[in-house]
Simulated scan of single mutants.
Amino acid sequence: MTALRYDVNLSILFTELPLLQRPAAAAACGFDAVEMWWPFDGPVPADSELDALAGALDDAGVSLVGLNFDAGHMPSGDRGLLSSRSTSRRFRDNIDVTVGFAERMGCRVLNALYGNTSDDTEHDLALENLALAVTAARPIGATVVIEALNSHENTRYPLTSSKAALEVVDQVPGTAFLADFYHLARMGEDLPALIASSAGRFGHVQIADVPGRGQPGTGELDYAELLTLLAASPYDGPVGLEYKPVGPSADSFGWLEDMP
Rank of each mutant, 00 (worst) to 15 (best):
D124L: 13
P18F: 04
T135G: 10
Q206D: 11
M36D: 00
L226I: 13
P45Y: 12
V8K: 07
L67M: 10
S151V: 00
A224N: 02
N94G: 15
D58T: 12
F101V: 04
N116G: 07
D59R: 15
A33L: 07
D251F: 08
T121L: 09
L130E: 03
E128C: 05
T98N: 00
H123Q: 13
S63K: 13
G115V: 04
E49M: 07
A136Q: 00
D258M: 11
G247Q: 08
W38G: 02
E220S: 15
E35D: 14
P173S: 05
N94P: 03
N116T: 08
N9R: 08
L4F: 08
F31G: 05
L67K: 01
P45N: 09
L166R: 14
P158T: 09
A102K: 04
Y223P: 03
T155G: 03
W255N: 06
G80M: 04
H183G: 06
E242S: 09
P139V: 11
N68S: 12
I95N: 00
V172H: 07
P248T: 08
A133T: 01
Y243T: 11
I12C: 07
S76K: 14
G100I: 10
A24T: 07
D251Q: 15
S84H: 11
I140R: 04
E147K: 12
L4C: 04
L53P: 02
F91P: 00
E35R: 05
D180W: 12
Y182F: 15
G247S: 07
D93R: 15
T15L: 00
A24E: 13
L159H: 03
E225N: 14
D58W: 08
A196G: 14
V34P: 02
R5M: 05
A231M: 11
H204S: 13
P192L: 11
L20V: 00
P234V: 10
Y235Q: 01
D209S: 12
A27G: 09
T135M: 12
L64Q: 09
T98M: 10
V134L: 08
T117S: 11
S198P: 02
G106C: 02
L221G: 03
L241E: 01
D47W: 03
V65I: 09
R5W: 00
V239Q: 00
P45S: 04
L57W: 06
D58H: 13
A112C: 09
I195N: 10
P216K: 12
V239F: 03
D124E: 15
R92I: 09
M1P: 05
G174T: 07
I195S: 01
A193E: 14
T155K: 13
L132S: 10
L20K: 09
N9V: 05
D78F: 04
L57H: 00
D190E: 13
Q171K: 14
